[in-house]
Design a binder for these strands. Structure first.
Lengths: 220, 220
DNA sequence: TTTAAACTGTGTATAAAATACACAGAATAT
DNA sequence: ATATTCTGTGTATTTTATACACAGTTTAAA
């Protein structure tokens, strides 16, 4: 018989030593590529391995708040909108102790955030999806799952968060889509589809320095 | 500064007392209605409240295994296929102690499983969606989220698990869909769509006791 | 056992949505 | 001034989804 049982401290406490952690796949769009923020860990286990930023759930904090804390420490990001991806509970996913992780993803503008290695981190860097190093723990799976969820959300709800600046051209938006979904779209059809979703509005400005003088749009 | 920190017992253990629980929304289809299996709790807190079956994660078990254990105790169900829904971490969602829950849903045939109240449960019952009692803890939210996920999965991937018997008519399948999605479909269009998905095959048998003598299908 | 009632099983016509496609205008680079 | 490169737009075609009617089969009732 397992120790699974009623959740009642008044009667019996069946839980055992197990850490709850949060991990976050921070996506950014830079140089026309989708990137992920990775940190290099300076302590064992997985010393000198790249991995997703994460850490133990904070006392008296929700999971989301804990993610925000972790990322604030690393990047100065104050409050970002998070999307929950999944939970990971394989018994040996952490070599030292039992850890159950809940993973999230966030969408940010890399240029907004200085990334500063500190605490248990020796390096921190934006990586393109196509040149990801091998990752510590089971974080490669976490990245795959986060990416899948991001793609699903992008296809259905057109949420691209803060991946683009406040004002952007439709071509820039299309390039973002093509990059993330790894799929090409016809320019006219893409514009048609996006505009009839009625979530963007044109500004009076045009983007300079680019031929054709495209109109800048912003979110409504 | 929060206690969020590196996940390394060798350096410091930042985690604190917090139980990890699993909760499961077990769906069944009976009397042409979608039902949920609820249990009535016989101990405080939330004594005599109805709620989702659940319990603490078992030592050395994954979250899924823990759900299977919980449900096996209640219903005799051996191994069911589970779908992870979400994690819940509000600080005061459990009045006595800090509990983070990961919720799942499962699809079963009610008639297959005797449901037996035991341990900390005084009653157990299948409830129709439209006559759910008010639930303990934050389980009403969990039910809503599980239902939403079920609907999404049903729409996209045609996974209806074990909600129907091995052999079923297309009309029965359609009624299942209409019930879960709360939407009516044209019979001919529904059949066309389902059949061209190529996941069902007709058997040689017809269903008796029903006018028209419909053909029985099964999953490929 | 005959008849009525209720359900099954099928195809086509229409509407809506997605896709394919070309050229004139605007800004930049030469 | 001219060439180049990008922008911005409409329509025709294909695909997909929707609407819709009648003959055949089984059960229930007379």
């Amino acid at each position: 018989m397992s120790k699974t049982g009623p959740l009642d401290t008044a009667v019996s406490l069946d839980s055992y030593e197990c850490t709850i952690a949060v991990e976050c796949c921070v996506f950014g769009f830079q140089d026309n590529k989708l990137k992920i923020l990775l940190v290099k860990r300076s302590i064992e286990p997985f010393k000198d391995h790249w991995m997703l930023p994460g850490g133990a759930m904070g006392e008296g904090k929700t999971l989301s708040e804990s993610v925000n804390d972790v990322l604030h420490n690393l990047t100065g990001i104050k409050k970002l909108s998070l999307e929950q991806v999944a939970s990971y509970s394989e018994v040996n996913r952490h070599p030292v102790k039992r850890v159950v992780s809940v993973s999230f993803y966030a969408l940010v503008k890399p240029e907004n955030y200085p990334v500063i290695p500190k605490n248990y981190i020796s390096d921190i860097k934006w990586y393109s999806l196509d040149e990801l190093p091998s990752l510590g723990f089971d974080h490669e799976k976490l990245v795959g799952d986060a990416l899948e969820k991001l793609r699903d959300n992008l296809k259905e709800h057109l949420v691209f968060g803060e991946l683009l600046p406040d004002r952007f051209t439709l071509t820039e938006l299309q390039e973002l889509y093509e990059n993330i979904l790894e799929e090409k779209f016809d320019r006219r059809n893409f514009r048609k589809k996006i505009l009839q979703m009625n979530i963007l509005e044109p500004t009076n400005e045009k983007k300079t320095g680019v031929k054709g003088g495209p109109v800048l749009y912003r979110k409504k």
